[in-house]
Amino acid sequence: MGFDPVAFLERAVPVASNDGVSEMRTLLVETLASHGADPAVDDAGNVVAARGAADPETHLVFNTHIDTVSPHVPFERTTDAGDDVIRGRGSCDAKGPLAAILAAFFAVEPADDARVTLAVTPDEEVLSTGAAALDLDADMYVVGEPTGLDVCTAAKGRFQGTLTLSGVASHAAEPQSGVNAVFALERALAAIRAFDDGRAAHPQLGAATLTPTTVEGGAATNQVPATCELVLDRRSVPPETAAAFRDSLETAVRDAVPDDVGVAFDLTERPTPFLEAFATDEDHELVRTLAAASDRAGGSGVVRPFTAATEASYFAPAPVVVFGPGVLADETGAVAHADREYVRVADVRRAADALTDAVGELVGAN
């Protein structure tokens, strides 16, 4: 029996996977097994299946995720202004892309020297422990996310850290006897505003951003504050790494504030690496082939950056693209992660056709 990506999506969206992925993972494993694959679930909860040569000359990996954000939004299929639409949590992020990927995975017949691997992760929306545990060595990666059928070749990274300014507490009636950490924040913020001055914008991603998000300081209203903490959100571009950002930010603030103020900048502790920026050459065969296939299937054929951080960064610097049906936002507002999350049925089929076409050309038997 052939695989119908829309029928699969109608089964997948009603399965809540915002508070655990066990039921959704079971559905995926059963679907793979029923279509002749031999799926395995590794210790990190990834579902992995492969087709083709054991020692390939060309290896392509499909990746996406089965977890969703909260709250769960019930499944609904409607017709809006002539569009057949599937609504509900995960419809575009990322069960719609998963449905399209499965169609291509089942359809492709790898060449004798080629291999196609499917690797579906369980916690992309949280800490990406699944993706961090994957041990893959492939020539090309396609990551399923809602891109509106555009081929996305780059994305900014996301780092987060806390800047701590340390002073000396004293009575507010004698402020000169202490060192006011909140006063030091003024110069620290000036250094943060100027942090990227003179840095060249990335040709695909533009400029990095650095945004103060929360601030806390002081312990009592009649006391000179001994500490002030500022949380910073960094959206990075290549080649900046998390460690290099940490060091350069701390140095910039240290140079800006008075010598009697202590400065420490610590990246937020997490069990997996931060999602760093990545960029794939737009002239790579993977990009050109998928863009042309998307165009033939009724997509735009547009090549552009992705606007959110993704697990694609774990696969770089190998060539990696992000692709799938659905959009993060439309002219009305947010779609992915919103109560109105949806995907157009026609776009799911177009994505499946585009991926099948492209992967057949890249690794399929002649």
Score class of each variant (00 low, 15 high):
residue 49 A to Y: 05
residue 35 H to T: 02
residue 92 C to L: 05
residue 115 R to H: 08
residue 31 T to M: 01
residue 129 T to G: 05
residue 80 D to V: 14
residue 54 A to N: 12
residue 58 T to Q: 14
residue 113 D to T: 14
residue 109 E to V: 13
residue 121 T to Y: 03
residue 133 A to L: 13
residue 79 T to Y: 00
residue 103 A to N: 04
residue 47 V to W: 03
residue 20 G to W: 07
residue 38 D to W: 01
residue 107 A to D: 13
residue 134 L to S: 11
residue 56 P to W: 11
residue 36 G to M: 08
residue 127 L to H: 08
residue 118 L to N: 08
residue 18 N to D: 15
residue 58 T to N: 12
residue 56 P to E: 11
residue 91 S to I: 10
residue 127 L to D: 12
residue 121 T to C: 04
residue 43 D to A: 15
residue 56 P to V: 11
residue 35 H to Y: 13
residue 87 R to C: 06
residue 28 L to M: 12
residue 131 A to Y: 05
residue 134 L to N: 10
residue 72 H to L: 04
residue 52 G to Y: 12
residue 52 G to K: 13
residue 41 V to T: 15
residue 51 R to F: 01
residue 26 T to P: 01
residue 142 V to E: 01
residue 78 T to P: 01
residue 62 F to A: 10
residue 105 F to E: 03
residue 19 D to P: 00
residue 24 M to W: 10
residue 83 D to L: 02
residue 25 R to G: 08
residue 47 V to Y: 03
residue 34 S to F: 01
residue 89 R to T: 12
residue 69 V to S: 10
residue 138 A to T: 03
residue 80 D to T: 14
residue 110 P to S: 11
residue 26 T to F: 00
residue 126 V to L: 12
residue 57 E to T: 14
residue 18 N to E: 14
residue 130 G to V: 10
residue 45 G to S: 05
residue 87 R to D: 00
residue 83 D to T: 00
residue 53 A to N: 13
residue 59 H to F: 05
residue 45 G to Q: 03
residue 17 S to A: 14
residue 118 L to A: 15
residue 19 D to A: 15
residue 63 N to Y: 02
residue 79 T to M: 06
residue 52 G to M: 14
residue 127 L to P: 00
residue 33 A to H: 02
residue 49 A to D: 05
residue 19 D to W: 00
residue 138 A to Y: 05
residue 134 L to A: 10
residue 107 A to F: 01
residue 19 D to G: 06
residue 85 V to M: 00
residue 117 T to K: 07
residue 82 G to H: 01
residue 66 I to R: 06
residue 90 G to E: 09
residue 74 P to L: 08
residue 32 L to K: 04
residue 83 D to Q: 05
residue 47 V to P: 03
residue 132 A to I: 08
residue 40 A to S: 15
residue 90 G to V: 11
residue 52 G to H: 12
residue 62 F to Q: 09
residue 126 V to Y: 10
residue 27 L to E: 06
residue 145 E to M: 02
residue 21 V to I: 14
residue 143 V to P: 00
residue 74 P to C: 07
residue 98 L to D: 10
residue 138 A to C: 07
residue 101 I to E: 14
residue 62 F to W: 11
residue 112 D to M: 03
residue 134 L to T: 10
residue 145 E to F: 01
residue 22 S to T: 14
residue 25 R to T: 14
residue 53 A to Q: 09
residue 67 D to Y: 08
residue 81 A to T: 01
residue 116 V to D: 05
residue 136 L to G: 11
residue 85 V to D: 00
residue 86 I to Y: 03
residue 83 D to F: 02
residue 28 L to G: 10
residue 93 D to H: 04
residue 135 D to H: 13
residue 115 R to Q: 15
residue 119 A to T: 07
residue 135 D to V: 13
residue 50 A to D: 09
residue 33 A to E: 13
residue 122 P to W: 07
residue 90 G to N: 09
residue 121 T to A: 02
residue 92 C to P: 06
residue 39 P to D: 06
residue 111 A to L: 03
residue 44 A to E: 07
residue 110 P to E: 12
residue 56 P to L: 11
residue 130 G to L: 11
residue 42 D to W: 05
residue 43 D to W: 01
residue 68 T to L: 04
residue 73 V to L: 07
residue 45 G to T: 03
residue 137 D to G: 14
residue 87 R to E: 05
residue 127 L to V: 07
residue 50 A to S: 15
residue 142 V to M: 01
residue 138 A to W: 06
residue 117 T to H: 09
residue 131 A to I: 07
residue 28 L to N: 09
residue 105 F to P: 02
residue 129 T to K: 09
residue 32 L to F: 04
residue 17 S to E: 06
